[in-house]
Design a protein around this nucleic acid. Sequence first.
DNA 1: GTCTATATCCAGATAGAC
DNA 2: GTCTATCTGGATATAGAC
Lengths: 204, 204
Amino acid sequence: MDKENTKRTTEQLILEAARTVFIRKGLEGARMQEIANEAGINKALLHYYFRSKEKLFNHIFEKALAGMFDVINESIHKEGDVFAFIETFVDHYLSTLKENPFIPNFIFNEINSHPERIHQFSDKARLNFPGYKQMVEKNIKQNKIIAISPEHLLIDMLGMCVFPVLGRPIIEKVFFEDHPAGAENFLYERKQHIISFLKKALQP
Amino acid sequence: MDKENTKRTTEQLILEAARTVFIRKGLEGARMQEIANEAGINKALLHYYFRSKEKLFNHIFEKALAGMFDVINESIHKEGDVFAFIETFVDHYLSTLKENPFIPNFIFNEINSHPERIHQFSDKARLNFPGYKQMVEKNIKQNKIIAISPEHLLIDMLGMCVFPVLGRPIIEKVFFEDHPAGAENFLYERKQHIISFLKKALQP
DNA sequence: GTCTATATCCAGATAGAC
DNA sequence: GTCTATCTGGATATAGAC
């Protein structure tokens, strides 16, 4: 019992530390030593628990990918109103990004370096695309929104939310060089901007 | 003279090889050996010409960043019509991304790993933001488009263009698992989609 | 389970011949 | 300018004591 408890605690410590370091630095950039330091344990223990850097990485990556899909999935209600979906989704997604601003870069970078990984995890990290599509098409039929490709609409939303987080250092430099507080405010404003922008674009 | 010619040619060879490898793998992921192979020369020559991996990298990064800004800058005409700008920009930008699909990931990844780099290059890689802003504000005043923040609009456009390229492996899996040709077509369709989507959102 | 010490490998960088 | 051979440091991973 005691052993079990200790094990869980250490494993959890490692996973949290690994998450912090991997998401910030990626698979190549992360150092096992840094993860060990972050967890307050020894480097050898990482291998004792997870065998190799890559196996440890896989745990983190899978959870991160699944988490991003979940934000979308949780906003979907098959029979619901698209505008309600948009408001919920944009709100939750931007909040998640605010708390985890490096996850998108992490995911895109690893996915583009090793596209085959997406198959590896596709059972555990899944987007409820059929549910989403059904919702959009129903709203089109009911004349609540213009005819639009659900695929393109989803990419529009995601792009508008993700870009400012991915490109934050550039945005700070280009838009707000003289007033650094502006960038924070800009990200805050985006929630309302995206919602009203999408509403305008979709209105029949 | 002969020496000079040889020098230029080799230097050019190295830069092209480095571009290919760095853009695909990033600073951490790239190997000097791979760049040498790609250039058809010896590893030691890379150091002879560029001293260190990082110095070589800086050449590539600066050009890539400037290139992305240039696509925007070239579409801007201070006195022009926003819709003309949008059409030119989206067209050129998506064409550039089609030919260089890994540049956005490259830039975002390096910028987020080392945000200080953006200052290092900000004289040579600059966005003509004042010109763009002037154009948008003029169009608003002339009632050609609704009142909108130029900053947000620019991010909207960029996000809608860049996301499908960044997330292509995910999109292929989620949208087009059964018909891989669909992804290619999807990216092709996006040009028209984005233009008409923006027009609809902006119309007064 | 957790540590210290060490093996092993590999990448960037340099020396020196041609 | 270009090559081969080599140095050096640092990273993952393992052995083995506690």
